[in-house]
């Protein structure tokens, strides 16, 4: 809880600071809707990768999966004229299959997650470019109702001008499901346990391979889902660059949100706040007129400071605990 509090305060600081410095442009309905929409899109990817990170793994292929899906959806719908449900179902199945292959290679073949998903990153990107001949993919002016999924907004009662973008609502919905799954089900407990100590989890009768595969399937599924929304939102996908570095945004959001790359730690709320912080920073950089070339440097610095503060807080707590124990021991209560 404390970890989430820290990053929540940081997020509020960025939002309030930008609102004070640039009230007109930041608080405009257009900007806020835009910001929440992007938080939604990146939030989905971040929730997905959080599951993999909790098992102590990593998924570097997310951006390429977003790119692949971004190319496939227009191809299926526009070029091959598949019906919308068939196209969406195929894409979901392809995403699930990608996750399954990652999981099988990592558990059954004992390959390292970094290597497997790095190869995935290269393969799906190359495949997308070859499939489309590197030409821009889009839906033109069609598929209005489908694109409503990414561009639609739901008016908020009693608030004028501002409407919540659908991707944001989707992320909140998925976040609630993911949080329940992680904290209230047996499987979530298994994931947290094996992320801390896979061997002890296996010795306790947990089928760790299956759980790890499940985590990669969830991650790729979420990447696929995010990919559908990104392509609908952008409607002009460049096969060579669409989704590039998105895995790093997602991983950064998860880490900021309290996931440890060592595994076993993480909360869905934190991850969504992490994603929000990333987008808020990006938004501030633009609005405050900071050179956009510095974008990566600023975001990188914030993450570094965030994890450093977290580590220092943890050490402080450890020392305090040790001192307390020493005091208890000195006062003569031995166990």
């Amino acid at each position: 809880m404390k970890r989430i509090l820290g990053i929540l305060l940081l997020l509020l600081a960025v939002l309030v600071g930008t609102a004070i410095l640039e009230p007109d442009s930041f608080l405009s309905a257009y900007n806020l809707q835009n910001l929440t929409g992007w938080i939604g899109l990146f939030g989905i990817l971040s929730i997905g990768v959080a599951f993999v990170i909790i098992t102590g793994g990593i998924d570097l292929s997310i951006g390429s999966v977003v790119g692949l899906v971004g190319c496939l959806l227009p191809l299926f719908l526009v070029e091959h004229e598949l019906s919308v449900p068939v196209a969406l179902l195929s894409i979901v199945l392809i995403s699930l299959a990608i996750g399954l292959v990652h999981g099988l290679l990592i558990t059954k073949m004992r390959l390292q997650p970094f290597v497997v998903t790095l190869c995935g990153l290269l393969i799906y990107r190359g495949f997308s470019r070859w499939l489309t001949g590197d030409s821009t993919q889009g839906f033109g002016t069609g598929f209005k109702s489908l694109r409503y999924l990414a561009r639609g907004k739901i008016p908020v009662p009693f608030v004028e001008d501002f409407a919540l973008p659908i991707p944001f609502l989707i992320t909140i919905g998925l976040g609630i499901v993911a949080a329940i799954f992680l904290n209230k089900t047996v499987f979530g407990r298994y994931l947290l346990a094996l992320g801390r100590n896979e061997q002890a989890a296996r010795f306790s009768g947990i089928k760790t391979d299956r759980m790890i595969i499940l985590a990669y399937v969830i991650c790729s599924f979420m990447a696929g889902l995010g990919g559908i929304l990104f392509s609908l939102e952008i409607n002009g996908v460049q096969p060579a660059s669409h989704g590039e570095f998105y895995e790093l945004y997602a991983i950064a959001a998860a880490v900021l949100g309290g996931c440890s790359l060592r595994g076993g730690e993480g909360s869905i709320t934190g991850v969504i706040i992490g994603a929000a912080l990333m987008r808020a920073l990006y938004n501030s950089i633009n609005l405050l007129g900071m050179p956009t070339e510095l974008e990566f440097a600023i975001i990188g610095t914030v993450i570094l400071v965030g994890v450093l503060a977290d580590e220092l807080a943890k050490r402080f707590a450890e020392t305090r605990r040790a001192r307390q124990q020493a005091r208890v021991a000195a006062s003569g209560t031995r166990n």
Binding site: Y190, R196, N197
Partner: peptide, 19 residues
């Protein structure tokens, strides 16, 4: 290494196998 998830609570460890 094999018996416990050290960072988890007494309750979570005792529960683990029987969940």
């Amino acid at each position: 290494l094999q018996g416990l998830i050290l960072e988890m609570s007494v309750g979570e460890n005792i529960g683990l196998a029987g969940l």
